[in-house]
Design a protein around this nucleic acid. Sequence first.
RNA 1: GGUGGGUUGGCCGAGAGGCGAGGCAACGGACUGCAAAUCCGUCAACACGGGUUCGAAUCCCGUACCCACCUCCA
Length: 480
Amino acid sequence: MSLRLHDSATREVRDFEPLTEGRVGVYVCGLTVQGEPHVGHVRSAVAFDVLRRWLLASGYAVDFVRNVTDIDDKILAKAAAAGMHWYELAYAMTRVLDGVYDDLNVLPPTYVPLATGHVPEMVELIGELVEKGHAYPAPDGSGDVYFDVRSWPEYGGLTGQRTEDMEAAADADPRGKRDPRDFALWKGRQPGSGEPESASWASPWGRGRPGWHIECSAMAGKYLGPAFDIHGGGVDLRFPHHENEQAQSRAAGRPFASYWLHNAWITTAGEKMSKSLGNSLLVPEVLRRVRGIELRYYMVGAHYRSTVEFSFEALDEAAAGFRRIEGFLARAVDVVGEVPAPGVACAEFVNAMDDDLGTPAAVGAVFDVVREGNKLLAGGDSPALRGVVASVRAMLDVLGVDPYDPAWGAARGGDDARAGRLTEAVDVLVRGLLEQRGEARTAKDFGTADAIRDRIAAAGVEVTDTPSGPAWSLARPDKD
RNA sequence: GGUGGGUUGGCCGAGAGGCGAGGCAACGGACUGCAAAUCCGUCAACACGGGUUCGAAUCCCGUACCCACCUCCA
């Protein structure tokens, strides 16, 4: 079986066929950098990072573009409220976001274009649309330019809606629109708006700033070409954002995306996270409770099109499940004496991933292999055991949760060399104590043996006896 | 009003007409000085009501509840 993906446009899972053999172009709508990211925000990045990793593992070259929207109403409003420059806020939040992506081992995209860096491309596209009769400058002198929805019969096609059925936004300012459903391509700078001069650019229609949707059309076109393979984003973006992107692009004569992929929400208390708010769900807060690799494992445990109801209980359980995999790898690496390089994923895993990125079934496949490996472990080092470890690593790598991926250590500028020396130092000390404990155990002096173990435990190090002798590991820090 | 998605065991979470993933938890067994880990086994579910079928968690009709989107929310 080869890769099949759920295309939101056709609402079915269909065979994936790239426009260019062996090469895939992916555009993902990134975040509007207006505040600190909560766990819901990063699901999209993780979901499409898995897509990317699977495409790479499948032998494709991947051009992966994820934008940052660094200018919009909310950024302007929040920055003003905080007494900051709008670009100051946007940049600060961009950096926070990048840090969070690193914490979750999200591969850096091929390129991360900023909306504010592509105003000329947007102006050019708007100009084409005006020329072709699909857009018009508002007659009210506002300097706005709108997309003419009625000039584009296939409008609504992406989301299966007919324009007549759409509810006109109650709070929308009709300004100079011909039809309430028309949307802004360009927003003229309004004299009394209080918006800073820096938030406007020159255009044939006067100073102003771009509408929300045009940036993605312009940037996807610039970096991936008029036609590209996959466009991704959160479900909420289907309409209007993606519908509008497609309309703008196609009306300008660009075929645009072949496949549309949309990830579902992470909710809390059955509601979208933005309603629930709460600092405890900000990614840095969640990462005080579990490691990034565990949070990512939790997200990957659900299918990207399934809504996840976030709970700390479920998160803790997922983390416990992940540690089962991790524990196997640690024991195996100990027995094998080195970390085998990633090898080949098992067939079940491949089939699961090929079926619209079926990560839950893929995780199930990993556990099957882990169980196999645990059995082999009893027999000591063997080619079979090494093969299993290599396979598990390969599969975890696709999901972005391979504990031996150096990226986990590198995140946040960790000092690997220093950490390595510390580990060695602790190893020498603990092994010394374990020798004493071994002597006590041989002499059946279990009181002394346990006292030594307790002393080691007090230092936060856990001792477990394995068939190949005692082993130590860092105990999990208590949470809460 | 329109559009889409959902409801699976104690919990999380797949599956999409017969062979009922997987994890966590629980219970029993093996192993262990004890413990941990591991292995083996057990347990149990398809919101509700009809229908189609030899056979339905899966298809159809209806009902209930939940969620999302309908012009700048991932």
